[in-house]
Design a protein around this nucleic acid. Structure first.
Lengths: 190, 190
DNA sequence: TGTATTTGCCTAAAGCTTTTAGGCAAATTA
DNA sequence: TAATTTGCCTAAAAGCTTTAGGCAAATACA
């Protein structure tokens, strides 16, 4: 019989596509085997388990996101950088909802430490260097930005803003305006 | 044989407890049947499907959250209300991680429209009435608050802030300070 | 080029979850 | 007490996960 040419790499890529098509929750080893027209057990030579597959998809998504974010940040600073960075998240989530969901998978600490998640944190700090925050406020701001971006995108993705005016794009723009204003004028502890 | 005294109500409650113990993702009809020491098929008289069970747990969590939020808001206004409301989310998520995850389940529009989610939106607006925002800025602010609360709590729940200083409580306090300052001084469009 | 080794996908099989169908017995109502 | 409803049961089919062991194709090497 001819071989299908499976590899961990190809499986993970196909898994990511599958996630975007049918939702990350529906990504199964079985579905992937069907896609390659191959017996389910065959995939277990390339992937340790269903969980392993999902983790690898998450890591792929994190890398793709970090790459795009790095591109977007090149040559930008201040609000320009903030908006470009934020838009990368939102656009990625809209274009690749399954991958984005995967990127939010809980990783165990050591996996997380060697993932592209680290680059995300570094880039967020790079943006904040355009504002005059000192520690520990910069850390608080890093966390706030992460919260807003993820929170907004999650809510938008799960339909929280649809069917209500104004459309979410307008809120996104105004929220980023507000964040920029806030960072330029970060308040002292109450 | 003696009857176990199952009911939709009891199943949903037990399902919520199970979710808090082993994670919402691990809530299955089978696991629930085991907990009641009953055959799996028996549960299908009380619950339409696995999805139905999960949706009901989500609705329960949304109601519990709304009830607590309403209690917390009673007699409070301004920043006091903002902080109390935000703390309800965070505390609930920490005390009931499985239920909180359930509360974030994507509901179909009609289910969502009759859920306690509506009360959440109303309460957020009530808080904002303590600040001088007019439409459409109030709506943008509603969305921003929802994003920050959910985003922060999600990140905290998935371990995003652990093992790094300062501890997340400090960031939470300062983020709420910042949000209060921002709402008191909401910027005009850029 | 022929042989040896590695690698890739296969069959088989066990265990778990979901869901439907039909049945008997316990609880409720009359 | 008899009739009806309700609750949990057994049985069974179908799908996903995972392990074990095997044959054949690809690769390495002489």
């Amino acid at each position: 019989m001819a071989r299908a040419g499976l590899s961990t790499e190809r499986l993970v890529r196909a898994g990511a596509e599958l996630a975007d098509e049918v939702g990350f929750g529906q990504v199964t080893v079985s579905a992937l085997a069907r896609r390659f027209d191959v017996q389910v057990a065959s995939l277990y030579s390339h992937v340790k388990s269903s969980q392993d597959l999902k983790t690898r998809i998450a890591l792929l998504a994190l890398e793709e996101l970090a790459d795009r974010a790095a591109d977007a940040l090149a040559g930008r600073a201040g609000k320009d950088a903030l908006v470009a960075f934020a838009d990368v998240y939102r656009d990625y989530a809209r274009a690749h909802p399954g991958r984005y969901t995967a990127a939010r998978l809980r990783l165990d600490p050591e996996t997380a430490a060697t993932s592209a998640g680290v680059r995300h944190a570094q880039m967020t700090r790079a943006i904040l260097r355009g504002y005059d925050l000192t520690e520990p406020d910069e850390t608080h701001a890093v966390r706030m930005l992460g919260s807003v971006f993820h929170g907004f995108v999650d809510l938008e993705l799960s339909g929280g803003f649809s069917h209500s005016a104004p459309d979410s794009q307008q809120s996104w723009t105004r929220v980023l305006d507000a964040l920029d204003a806030l960072l330029r004028n970060w308040p002292a502890p109450a």
